[in-house]
Design a protein around this nucleic acid. Sequence first.
DNA 1: CTGCCTCGTGGCACATTCTGCCACGAAATC
DNA 2: GATTTCGTGGCAGAATGTGCCACGAGGCAG
Lengths: 211, 211
Amino acid sequence: MRRFLRPASPARRHQKEQTITTLRERKREQSRLGAVEAAWRLFIERGYDHVTVADICAAADIAPRTFHRYFASKEDVVVEPVRRMTTLLTDHLLASSPEISDADALHQAQREVGRFALEHRELLTALRLVARRSNHLRVSQIALRPEQEAEIATLLAARRPDGDATDWRLRLLVGSSTAAFRVWYEDVFTSEQPDPMAHLDTILNAITISA
Amino acid sequence: MRRFLRPASPARRHQKEQTITTLRERKREQSRLGAVEAAWRLFIERGYDHVTVADICAAADIAPRTFHRYFASKEDVVVEPVRRMTTLLTDHLLASSPEISDADALHQAQREVGRFALEHRELLTALRLVARRSNHLRVSQIALRPEQEAEIATLLAARRPDGDATDWRLRLLVGSSTAAFRVWYEDVFTSEQPDPMAHLDTILNAITISA
DNA sequence: CTGCCTCGTGGCACATTCTGCCACGAAATC
DNA sequence: GATTTCGTGGCAGAATGTGCCACGAGGCAG
């Protein structure tokens, strides 16, 4: 579970192994991590609706006031995995070669996210259940959300000389590919797939956007 | 604006013109409608974040307790138009001929929703702004949301003898078509389209799902 | 018409989330 | 070693959302 976390948020340093964490930083991470882990544990245990921020704080041994400095809302803790996957996706997009097509770049990045999801299948399954069981949680899908599609489109557009992110074909590519990923994600977590990654390829390749 | 509302929620009677509204029903509708209109007006005026439930209740002349009987949350009032469009879509799907393909049925229904959106363009534009300006509102898109995709898939599946809603091709059709609609919706509200409906057709037809 | 039942309403108390403000103390800096 | 930075927690308060109960008007027999 630990591997799931942190090393992505503070703008991953591309300088090699710059692990000069100051004590303050470490304590901060500890606070945040402690809160996340306590929250997830309690959510899985009792369900999102039956866990209060106070409960989480008691378990993580921090003050509610501190909790709300790290997370804008209780829901925010749940979205953490989504953020993690989004970061993964955008990182891969940023690193992708300008040679390959938009679709290829996007799909390669999505395969990375898919691999990640499979690696953390157990935790994601649990969180998916948490989300489904709750009446108040508005995040029904622990997966890429349409909110981030605009960002992805921008990144893809940035790879090109013209950099036009308003092109509807580009946005359609992003939207439909994200939809495809959600379909796969659903399949992976509801039925046994003999070869999940092959299944992802099948779904991603099933969509064609006419030029 | 009034036309936008009500006549859809209490399971539209297919019996012709069954307008035997009792006084109680009328008062109920009046309460709800008054709240919605007051809320929208205030939201557009001051922005979602700067309007409290108490404000809405004062404007609509109802008690906060009553407000929360009609709406699960303040956000719920904003989602009203989305619900309206979803109802429109599902109604058309239910009424669609079993002869035509899934894609055709869905796209025809989406064209209806598109027409509806264009009719109420002014109001939807305002609500779109409200959603964008807010920091707390989680509904970033006043359009069809992925949450309802499962329902749409079920309806489409129900038109067929086997009724298999788990078929990933079907879900992919729904997901990508919904994404296409969002792309169109975005275009319509951000740039001038000479022929919006033609544009919708173009986008919907741009997607192909291989058999 | 009359009495009874239904049900929309509002008041009240309360749990809960989230924020602004301030002060303490440890970590970082000079 | 003195000063500044900053993470933390306490407190008060705004705001959302819910359970419970009582009132009163609409609906329904008789």
